[in-house]
Design a protein around this nucleic acid. Structure first.
Lengths: 342, 342
DNA sequence: GAATCGTCTCAAACCGCTTTGGATAACGCA
DNA sequence: TGCGTTATCCAAAGCGGTTTGAGACGATTC
């Protein structure tokens, strides 16, 4: 059942039927109702492909996911972000198209998305310092929103980010207030912008108390369980091990916990741990009572908001670049306590 | 730059240019090369929306993701499957469109995808017993491949699955061979088909040795860390606790481990654990040496294969339903050992 | 030299919708 | 009565490709 058939059945022209269904004013209300009813009765749904060609809009948003020679992006955090963004798209009748491509094809993928007209805009994931995607997208004129920020980019651009620096500064200060002075940082990869900011927050807090950071207490790696284990293990076998550890994610923290408990230490008593909690649906930080003390910010909500921002940018190209900084909350769990008496 | 412009520039008709670019035989080779060169030089990329309308194909595949009143599907396992499928789509110039919808809208989403022509086929995730999506998709005539199987569905349909029954039977037998007789099962939700099959495998192995299953040793819940913890905790505080535990996923196992270690038990000595390992990119089961003894089957590879199957079904609608059963391998890690002497 | 046959190219129809630019009829008002 | 408005509706021209059916041309065959 297409528009023409429906129009014939109604004894109207396709024009009128189209206008009736799309709420244009130049059609009689009774006619409109008649059309609406017939559309429902005959189960008419306009062909998306035709709409897209006729309107020149793709009604779709792209997410380009490079696969992993350098860094694996397909992680649970990413999944939750996508889920959040997807909710927004569904509500607005947009399609979400994911392109999973080898990372050397990333640039050509963006160019293709634009020139072939597959999408109206994209979300940029996991920005790095001086991220080349930002000038690229500006050059080709594809609307975009960055999830995070890219230090080093001069021109303003659209982004939505969590205040990672502040979050880690607060977390570090929280441990300092409990008397900890040797605090380890199990960070993500530090070519990632968010990881740089987290380290900055950590360092700011230390220097605020006149503490000289110890490089042996700062690690940077993928946010996996195994990497978390390895980093924590190394720190804990130092001559003077840390009494507190900051972990970059719930998953890293799983590894940190394994290292800690493997040495027979009790979390919250012998050693304090604070994590950054993205509030993942499949990795809840406890139920009512949080397991870990954490800086929490829902990445799923971030996905929803970033998608809304992008749809707005697409609808109103004239407006200047939007920017939004979310604050993480510091929630107290059972994994922190005063520094143990020697 | 569109087809007409390019044709004008070349002094050819759009017909010929289109045919030259699409490799039709009725065009002179020298002409074709001239066209190809011009297309590259002018950076011509045919508009996807126009192609889709003209050919009547969407060149896209859908994945419908219901969100969570009943059961959260956005988990790391799902993410890796999607990544694998996405690789296949990219290689074949198909788009992957994800629809994240409230689960009460699932049926109407599938109907819409079909009648609006957004996709050429879909992958069905997380099948349940008597899954209603299978008859629905058959009814509306949308090609599909199921990741998993749906017990209770009479008519044959396309699927790709792991032999979950066999995997869990082997894992159970492995523990039995080590002398364990009280073996706990931390299963996924048992309205999910794979969870039913896993339990069947577990029960088959037990009854093969004449062991009567103890309901207190069988739990069924979401495959989250917290649920794994809770289930293991409950089993371990029984009057006669298990000496071996099967866990449904890496994530569940994180919780099981927390419960075990929280009681001061040593994995592999005091208690043996076998997990099902989906070989997730962000949740590797150790590096060279596996941490957990596991039944392993890469869900990412499953995604690649399921996508290939679907593209094949789309291209050759006539062929009968394809079905493929993958076997999991049993890999020995450090989490299992002989039953401890009392 | 005419008929036949490939080879190469093109004009035009088509995919299913939107949207521009009228056309028609009813209406209001001087 | 005459004429500008207003309210409805429609024909036709896109959108940017693919595909059908046919024409032009040179080479081959009889």
């Amino acid at each position: 059942m297409n528009l023409k058939e429906l129009a014939t059945k109604l004894g109207l022209s396709p024009t009128t039927v189209s206008r009736a269904l799309n709420g244009y004013p130049e059609v009689n209300e009774t006619t409109r109702e008649r059309v609406m009813a017939a559309a429902k009765r005959h189960n008419y749904h306009p062909n998306t492909r035709a709409i897209r060609l006729a309107t020149g809009r793709a009604m779709a948003v792209g997410h380009v996911i490079p696969i992993a020679t350098r860094h694996e992006i397909v992680n649970p955090v990413f999944a939750d972000f996508i889920a959040g963004a997807g909710e927004t798209y569904s509500r607005n009748d947009y399609d979400m198209v994911l392109s999973v491509v080898p990372d050397e094809d990333e640039e050509s993928t963006y160019r293709g998305l634009k020139s072939k007209g597959n999408v109206d805009g994209v979300i940029v994931h996991a920005p790095r310092m001086n991220d080349p995607r930002i000038p690229l997208l500006r050059e080709i004129g594809l609307p975009f929103v960055v999830h995070g920020r890219a230090t080093g980019t001069a021109e303003p651009y659209c982004w939505l980010d969590v205040n990672n620096r502040r979050a880690f500064q607060r977390a570090t200060e929280f441990l300092l207030d409990l008397g900890h002075t040797r605090i380890g940082l199990v960070n993500g990869l530090e070519f990632m912008d968010f990881a740089i900011r987290r380290r900055t927050g950590y360092l700011d807090a230390l220097s605020g108390r006149g503490i000289v950071p110890d490089p042996a207490l700062m690690s940077s790696d993928e946010m996996t369980e195994v990497a978390g284990y390895r980093a924590a293990r190394a720190m804990l076998s130092l001559p003077i091990p840390p009494t507190g550890i900051l972990a970059a994610s719930m998953i890293s923290a799983m590894g940190v916990r394994r290292a800690v408990e493997g040495l027979g230490l009790v979390i919250g008593r012998d050693i304090s741990i604070i994590i950054h909690d993205d509030d993942l649906s499949y990795m809840k930080n406890g139920e009512d009572v949080p397991i870990f003390t954490a800086t929490r910010s829902s990445v799923r909500e971030a996905g929803r908001l970033a998608a809304e921002m992008l749809l707005d940018v697409i609808a109103n190209p004239g407006n200047g670049p939007q920017q939004r900084l979310l604050e993480a909350e510091l929630i107290i769990g059972q994994s922190t306590g005063p520094v143990p008496k020697a």
